[in-house]
Nucleic acid binder design. Structure first.
Length: 272
DNA sequence: AAACAGGCCAACCGCGGGGCG
DNA sequence: TCGCCCCGCGGTTGGCCTGTT
């Protein structure tokens, strides 16, 4: 038996909210709160909206301190790091970004950040991934996160020059036994690539050497990152400071060769 | 100038989980 | 314990906007 609808779909209004509806809802919520019930407000203020629609409008647009507009490089880093760790748990990720909503973060990831980071996926190091693990195909989102982990690991080295010299990056082909449907334990055959010390402030050199993130960015964005790098270095900070705690150890290899832990994520620098 | 394609984002949909009678 | 109801969440859609041909 299907679940009863939360409202009469035939009589509720859909589509964009009018300024009048916004104003009514805002005034009502600010004066009365929701009382944990989103079904009542639309009836009480006389708008023909589903309670869920009211909740969404309030959370994503009307509530105080909502931040609209461009995401900062710092926010980018938080989103990337958390996505690697926990996947598409947008509400949790958004909770780490004051003023941002899960919807905002999700849209930003899907329309910009993912493309920026995965845009060079086709240019993976020396042949890239074998997506088939034994007879098991990796869950797509898990695979994507693994790929991002590797690409972000590169950024990590960009911004930790002390780690860059003769650093090694796992680019890996996976093989082994399925353990829980999406993950694989040892053995993981690895290919290791060495690359030279890179200084991100030399954007041109970075383009030439790594061919990844920076040359994917438009000039203004790249300049932003370079500026941010200078600022962070000036403050004695490194980007992507998840190294030692991540499933990849600081030498760039997986710490435990266990894809399960990597896919589940436990190395975020941002405590949840 | 018109047509088309792609990007972007607000809003909707449907499911899972928790509270409660 | 069961079923209903609602909330919260992630995935998806649809329409507007902008850039390109």
């Amino acid at each position: 038996m299907g679940r009863a609808p939360c409202c009469d779909k035939a009589s509720v209004k859909k589509g964009p909210w009018s300024p009048e509806e916004d104003a009514k809802l805002k005034v009502y919520i600010e004066e009365h709160g929701t009382g944990g019930n989103w079904i009542a407000p639309p009836y009480k203020i006389g708008i023909k909206r589903c309670g869920k629609s009211c909740r969404l409008r309030w959370l994503n647009y009307l509530r105080p301190n909502i931040k609209h507009g461009d995401f900062s490089p710092e926010e980018d880093k938080i989103i990337c790091s958390l996505y690697i760790s926990i996947g598409s748990r947008w509400s949790i990720i958004a909770a780490q970004l004051p003023g941002r909503t899960d919807n905002d973060v999700k849209n930003y990831w899907n329309t910009k950040l993912k493309k920026r980071l995965l845009g060079k996926q086709r240019r993976e190091l020396n042949g890239g991934w074998n997506e088939v693990v034994g007879s098991q195909t990796l869950n797509a989102s898990a695979l994507e996160r693994i790929r991002l982990q590797i690409q972000l690991q590169q950024l990590h080295y960009h911004h930790n020059p002390s780690l860059c010299s003769s650093s090694k990056i796992l680019q890996g082909q996976c093989s082994g036994n399925s353990t829980n449907g999406i993950v694989v334990s040892e053995p993981i055959s690895t290919q290791v690539v060495e690359f030279d010390k890179i200084d991100v402030t030399n954007a041109e050199a970075s383009e030439n050497v790594d061919g990844f993130i920076l040359d994917d960015l438009s000039s203004p964005s790249r300049d932003r990152y370079v500026e941010e790098d200078k600022r962070m270095k000036g403050a004695g900070l490194n980007w992507w400071a998840y190294g030692d705690e991540s499933p990849m150890s600081s030498n760039g290899l997986f710490a435990d060769h266990n894809f399960d832990s990597m896919v589940q994520g436990y190395g975020s620098p941002y405590d949840l």
